[in-house]
């Protein structure tokens, strides 16, 4: 009977881990942008590997194999945030359309007019362009078609300011 209770615990751990991996895969396929997919992948890296290795540790009992599994868990828990950080660095440095996916402006621009310096119309226009249109943000996640016209609109605003 005690063996079956242990089996039940191990099965619970395995089912939890499979749920975590399934959630990670669904999230990585259903989200539209890599920063959201990163969030989903973190679930698989933490919950999935923890559940599987906890089940195997319960099955094995105390020993060298269990210690090595604990080392794997600790290693993956330390390296998963680090690799997410490097991935987001790649995205930040190589994607020229990144600010279209965000609600807020990510940088402080020197060419931007200071707040309260008049010309509220132009200011709000620029903010609307740079904030990636919070009104129809859902469309901005998936469609890559209307990127080029928006960018040229931004350039036009900038040029008018300079002139």
């Amino acid at each position: 009977m005690g063996e079956w209770i242990r089996f039940g615990l191990i099965a619970l751990c395995v089912v939890t881990a499979m749920t975590g991996f399934t959630a990670a895969v669904i999230g990585a396929n259903r989200f539209g942008f890599v920063m959201n997919r990163m969030h989903a992948a973190g679930i698989g890296d933490t919950l999935g590997i923890f559940g599987i290795l906890l089940a195997l540790m319960l099955k094995e009992g105390v020993g060298m194999v269990t210690a090595k599994m604990a080392v794997i868990i600790i290693f993956l828990w330390f390296t998963s945030p680090a690799s997410s950080h490097f991935l987001s660095q790649i995205e930040y440095f190589t994607n020229p359309h990144l600010f279209r996916y965000t609600d807020r402006d990510l940088t402080v621009r020197s060419s931007m007019p200071a707040a309260g310096s008049g010309e509220g119309e132009a200011n709000s226009e620029i903010e609307a362009v740079h904030s990636g249109n919070p009104g129809n943000n859902a469309a901005g996640y998936s469609s890559a078609k209307n990127k080029a016209p928006e960018l040229s609109q931004t350039e036009k605003n900038r040029k008018e300011e300079k002139a």
Binding site: A17, F21, A24, V25, A28, V34, R37, M38, A41, G44, D45, G48, I49, I52, L53, L56, K59, E60, V65, M69, I72, L76, S80, S83, L87, I90, E91, T94
Partner: peptide, 24 residues
């Protein structure tokens, strides 16, 4: 490219847990 790297990273995690199951 980041989507691909992310997918490969997840594949690596899952394969290492598969190897652990096989070891037991």
């Amino acid at each position: 490219v980041t989507d691909r790297i992310l997918a490969i990273n997840m594949i690596g995690t899952m394969v290492s847990s598969c190897i652990c199951i096989l070891a037991v």
